[in-house]
């Protein structure tokens, strides 16, 4: 019980955490990037003679229920999931940072109204927001990216607004204003670079949530549409064959877990460094 008051909170090395996460993420990224360049088979090509085949020299990870090469689909699917997640974070961060910056910097009635809206949206779990937006926009990969991007705006806007509230009264901003530098220039060229670390850490967390959200939506059948492959899509297709071919579920699932684990470890490492 003496240990209860140990002044060292976590001895599970922070940098070790970041490094582990980095290695895992790079492995997943390599799988996806390799898939963009070359896949052993075309990911949507069906091999009539080899449905639900096991591991063989031809199909390294076997085939799915339509005789499509699992490894190729896994590579293409990981690429699709990561690309959508990247697009989602970029959309959400660009719009969210813009709104948050204006709200935090100028304040006033615009801030008041905007924040009410953002807070309301923030109360909704982002998967629900995405569901609503998908039902307005329709499904498909571009729509999913847009829907998720919008669903991610509130969290970015809140974070950035908080940072701007703190930064705008710092000396360097005051002096910039006294020098007659325009507000827009101060916002985007003076303050924004100063909060880059906060943005990066929330982008990492956001990326994770985006991977998870894409997988969930595609799993539900309203995300990426067949015959395109994505990790969620593959998991959704695997469900009926869980008895005959559990690897159809386990393979994309494990890649999904690793991609989330890698980025969360990295985010954790970045956040705890200061």
């Amino acid at each position: 019980m003496a240990k209860f008051f140990s002044p060292f909170s976590d001895r599970f090395g922070k940098s070790a955490m970041f490094r582990t996460g980095f290695v895992i993420s790079m492995a997943v990224l390599a799988l996806a990037l390799a898939g963009y360049v070359h896949t052993p088979f075309p990911p949507n090509a069906m091999d009539e003679g080899a449905k639900l085949a096991g591991i063989s020299a031809g199909h390294l990870l076997g085939t799915d229920h339509l005789g499509r090469d699992m490894l190729s689909r896994l590579m293409a699917g990981t690429g699709m999931t990561l690309a959508i997640a990247f697009g989602t974070v970029m959309t959400g961060m660009a719009a969210g940072a813009f709104i948050g910056a204006l709200c935090g910097y100028f304040g006033g009635i615009f801030d008041e109204v905007m924040m009410r809206v953002i807070d309301t949206l923030f109360a909704f779990p982002s998967i629900l927001l995405a569901l609503v937006f998908v039902s307005v926009f329709g499904s498909g990969r571009i729509h999913v990216m847009l829907a998720l991007g919008i669903a991610f705006i509130p969290s970015f806007a809140r974070t950035v607004r908080g940072e701007f509230l703190r930064e705008k009264n710092r000396d360097y901003c005051m002096s910039a204003r006294q020098h007659g530098i325009s507000h827009m220039r101060i916002i985007f060229f003076h303050i924004l670079p100063n909060i880059a670390d906060v943005l990066i850490s929330s982008a990492l967390i956001g990326f994770n949530n985006a991977v998870l959200a894409e997988a969930s939506l595609s799993f539900l059948g309203i995300g990426v549409q067949p015959p395109d492959s994505s990790l969620g899509r593959m998991l959704s297709e695997s469900q009926q064959y869980l008895f005959k071919a559990p690897q159809m579920a386990l393979l994309p699932g494990i890649v999904l877990v690793f991609s989330i684990l890698g980025f969360s470890l990295m985010g954790e490492g970045v956040r705890n460094n200061d």
Binding site: A215, S216, L242, A249, L256, I260, S264, E268
Partner: peptide, 14 residues
Amino acid sequence: QGIMAVPPFFMGIM
């Protein structure tokens, strides 16, 4: 840390 990375629906499948 490992369990946190498992999406609920994959947990369900497993």
